[in-house]
């Protein structure tokens, strides 16, 4: 403590004047953070603990009934939440499995080809998200591209109905939608990687697999973690994809939440959202323990 006091005493007047200026500089950012993030979250938290006869009324009594309902209600909300997490994990893993080699390929291509390939990766963003999801019904449907091709080549005489309106089609569309984030995050890590280490490992007799596992992968882990954050978390909150291609078996937690909001059950809806948010927060804290967040965000 004494040392700390001494440090405080020895702050130069110039630094002392700089601190208020720094705080003023942070004000716009802090304002945006408070207005767009903190205040809405506080209101949501209040709603989730309030029972009111009035629509969106905060005058009422305190209750934990909404949370009790999330964890009871025949277990449906917990079960669907777990299902949502499992589907998000599978889709994120699939994005990594497909996206990593592709990012590696781009990073090792010539500069000219890198520009072309990166443009192709971001090209889907030029069209509407809704259209991109909807297009898959034309690809996977009974009269879709795949079924028509299979029939044309005589592989099947009946359409393969399992291609659409189930968990399979949901995951396929998730992978399609989110793979650009995976590729871009891992590509950024690969670009920053010290390639002389790869050459050194090869010179010292490491096999390609050993080189990848011991040199490349550890250096690109921040990119992998970043892609998990950018892919896994948004999938947890997906509504449009399960609605359009998920069918009856692809119902996710947000579908149930939206139904509650339509029934004007804002308190219960907020409680479901907070349970999800708590899970995401725990995930981020877990990631923070396993990787330096600063490196992750830089990636």
């Amino acid at each position: 403590m004494r040392a700390a006091s001494n440090v405080a005493v020895h702050i130069s007047p110039r630094v002392g004047r700089a601190i208020p200026r720094l705080l003023w500089g942070l004000l716009p950012l802090a304002t945006i953070d408070v207005v767009l993030f903190v205040i809405p979250m506080v209101f949501m938290a209040l709603f989730s603990f309030r029972f009111s006869e009035e629509l969106l009324g905060l005058v009422g009594r305190w209750t934990v009934a909404h949370y009790v309902k999330v964890f009871t209600s025949e277990g449906i909300y917990l079960r669907i939440l777990v299902k949502t997490i499992v589907i998000a994990v599978v889709a994120t893993a699939a994005c990594l499995l497909v996206g990593y080699p592709f990012a590696y390929f781009i990073a090792n291509a010539s500069r000219r080809w890198q520009s072309v390939l990166l443009t192709l990766v971001i090209m889907p963003f030029w069209t509407s998200y809704l259209l991109r999801v909807y297009a898959w019904t034309a690809i996977l449907g009974d009269r879709g591209l795949i079924n028509e091709a299979l029939r044309f080549f005589g592989v099947t005489d009946q359409p393969l109905s399992f291609l659409l309106f189930n968990v399979f089609s949901e995951i396929v569309v998730f992978v399609y939608l989110y793979i650009p984030y995976t590729v871009l995050a891992i590509y950024a890590s690969l670009e920053k990687m010290d390639r002389s280490l790869v050459l050194a490992a090869m010179d010292l007799g490491a096999t390609p697999v050993q080189t990848f596992l011991r040199i490349v992968l550890p250096q690109t882990l921040p990119g992998v973690y970043a892609s998990i954050v950018f892919v896994f978390i948004p999938i947890l909150g997906e509504y449009v994809t399960p609605t359009l291609v998920g069918g009856m078996s692809g119902v996710l937690i947000t579908n149930l939440l939206v139904n509650q909001i339509h029934a004007l059950e804002f308190g219960f809806g907020a409680a479901i959202a907070f349970v999800m948010a708590t899970f995401v927060l725990m995930l981020l804290l877990g990631l923070r323990r396993s990787v330096d967040l600063e490196r992750l965000y830089v990636a």
Binding site: E74, V251, N255
Partner: peptide, 15 residues
């Protein structure tokens, strides 16, 4: 009633 209907609907489709 509205709450009851929606709860039942959710319970059915999530089963």
């Amino acid at each position: 009633g509205l709450k009851m209907y929606i709860d039942a609907f959710n319970e059915a489709i999530a089963r």
